[in-house]
Amino acid sequence: MKAVVLAAGKGTRLRPLTDDKPKGMVEVNGKPIITHCLEQLRDLGADEFVVVVGYLKEKIISHYGDEFEGIPITYAHQREQKGLAHALLTVEEYIDDDFMLILGDNIFRANLQDVVRRQREDRADAAFLVEEVPWEEASRYGVCDTNKYGEIVDVVEKPEDPPSNLVMTGFYTFSPAIFHACHLVQPSNRGEYEISDAVDLLIKSGRTIDAIRIDGWRTDIGYPEDRDEAERKLQAAEEGVTDDVSAADEEEATAESGSE
């Protein structure tokens, strides 16, 4: 299965980290975010990478060249950053079957394999990794609504009044049907061609999109503090520290406090 990495962004909110490099080349725990993405896609069985580049694209191209650990890389150029649906159309000519899509500013340690497996079962036209976030944060993301079968029935991009707190995380699988939907998308109020609008068109055309709830964690590297948080989590994982351990420590502390 081919894998697409969207890495054309400027990362203005990450400045000064992005003053001289594109967002995807910001290092997290000693290596660029894109490298983290490529490693995970490799482990998921990707047989070809298609990387969408834009801002300071030569930094990415010169760093990775035409392959990553023996897996070929093709580059697609998004000349203007006009939204994720617009970015996706730059890879249309390279995709002829189901594919993985990852946003090149996300760090995952989660059940991505479950999303790929669901796509390969041929019961869904697309599958998304989703997670619940605090309600006050939901307006930062594409917000999903699901039915009792776990299928996505509505998606709204960055709504002022979110209908739920279940959001898309930045890892998807699609069939090529997504490209036709992207061609039909009109600019949003933000002036961008939103992936959520393309997904909504798929849903209205009767396509099935499954929501796979996250088991693990992910960090969207939008601000310098997000980079720091991702580093802390990765280092904790390397040292074998888990949230379960933290929870156990808290329970022990609570028990000791109650016995005093």
Rank of each mutant, 00 (worst) to 15 (best):
K2V: 06
K2C: 07
A3F: 11
A3T: 01
V4P: 03
V5G: 01
L6Q: 02
A7Q: 00
A7W: 01
K10L: 14
T12R: 07
L14T: 05
L14D: 05
L14C: 06
R15A: 05
R15T: 07
R15G: 13
P16K: 13
L17V: 04
L17A: 13
T18F: 00
D19S: 06
D19Y: 07
D20S: 05
K21R: 06
P22Y: 01
K23M: 07
G24P: 06
G24V: 03
M25V: 06
V26L: 14
V28Y: 03
P32L: 02
P32V: 06
I33M: 04
I34M: 15
T35Q: 08
L38P: 00
E39T: 02
E39G: 01
Q40N: 08
Q40K: 01
R42T: 03
G45P: 11
A46G: 11
A46V: 03
A46R: 07
V50Q: 04
V50T: 04
V52C: 14
Y55W: 02
K57T: 12
K59G: 05
I60P: 01
I60D: 15
I60S: 00
I60T: 00
S62N: 11
D66Q: 12
E67R: 15
F68I: 08
E69G: 02
G70A: 03
I71Q: 08
E80G: 03
A87R: 14
L88P: 05
E92W: 07
D97G: 04
D97K: 10
D97V: 12
F99H: 14
I102N: 00
L103D: 09
N106F: 13
I107N: 00
I107W: 03
R109F: 05
R109D: 15
A110H: 09
N111M: 09
L112S: 01
L112W: 05
R118H: 05
R118E: 14
R120A: 10
R120K: 10
D122M: 13
L129H: 06
E132P: 05
P134Y: 08
W135R: 05
W135D: 15
A138R: 05
R140Y: 12
Y141T: 09
Y141G: 09
Y141S: 00
V143Y: 00
V143P: 01
T146I: 09
Y149I: 10
D154W: 12
E157H: 08
K158R: 10
D161R: 05
N165V: 03
N165L: 04
L166S: 02
L166R: 07
V167R: 12
M168W: 02
F171W: 07
I178Y: 15
F179L: 14
A181V: 02
C182Q: 02
H183K: 10
P187E: 13
P187N: 03
R190E: 10
G191L: 11
Y193V: 02
I195N: 09
L201K: 01
I203D: 06
K204F: 08
R207H: 07
A211Y: 11
A211F: 04
I214P: 01
W217M: 15
R218S: 11
I221M: 15
A230E: 15
R232D: 12
R232L: 11
A236N: 14
E239V: 09
E239D: 13
T242G: 08
D243S: 13
D243W: 14
V245I: 15
S246L: 12
A247C: 04
A248S: 14
A248Q: 11
D249Y: 10
D249V: 11
E251D: 08
A253R: 04
A253S: 09
A255Q: 04
E256Q: 08
S257P: 12
